[in-house]
């Protein structure tokens, strides 16, 4: 997969205003004809789930306000086969274990198994105390129909830089 063009590139604080701004830029790209409706819908879902997910981890680690030190990053790249989304942001070291095993479980599941697990998590979580359903990353994999590539790089003893890359191929 060869990178052709970077369509969206953001580095800085991450919050809902930024997400809305990026979605509005994505909409402009769609209106200009830079991406068709098939990709637009998929990229929109992945962007929302990814940025909301990352923002939750920032909020949990109380880093959301301290973004000058630890910038988040988001990129939408056009490739010769489709599109690629990249995001990175700091997380607490203690959050990495769950994320790693969760993504590994997603990556080793075929689409049918992924959907079964997705529905089971929804069933178990209807009245859980968590604010969210806990299915954001699974939804990303379902929509992209590709594996989620991730890395964790040490920032200091408490923080890691968590990066995700996911490809969205043509139909």
């Amino acid at each position: 997969m060869t990178e052709v063009k970077t369509l969206l590139n953001y580095k800085g604080a991450l919050n809902y205003k930024v997400l809305n701004h990026l979605l509005s830029n994505l909409n402009e790209l769609s209106e200009k004809g830079s991406l068709d409706n098939y990709f637009y819908k998929k990229i929109q879902i992945i962007m929302i789930e990814l940025i909301e997910n990352n923002y939750q981890y920032l909020k949990n680690s109380k880093l959301a306000k301290d973004t000058n030190l630890f910038d988040s990053e988001f990129k939408l790249i056009q490739t010769d086969e489709g599109f690629k989304i990249f995001s990175s942001n700091p997380i607490r070291v203690c959050d990495a274990g769950f994320l790693k095993s969760h993504i590994d479980q997603i990556n080793k599941s075929d689409p049918n198994k992924l959907r079964t697990i997705y529905k089971q998590i929804l069933t178990d979580g209807i009245y859980s105390s968590k604010r969210t359903a806990g299915i954001g990353l699974m939804r990303i994999a379902k929509v992209a129909k590709n594996k989620i590539h991730y890395t964790f790089k040490q920032i200091d003893n408490n923080l890691l830089n968590y990066s995700i890359e996911i490809e969205i191929s043509s139909r």
């Binding site: 789930e49 909301e52 929804l122 209807i126 969210t132 359903a133 299915i135 954001g136």
Partner: peptide
């Protein structure tokens, strides 16, 4: 459009 967080509350 519905995000994954909304699905939990729609189920409720």
């Amino acid at each position: 459009y519905m995000n994954s967080a909304s699905s939990k509350y729609i189920l409720q």
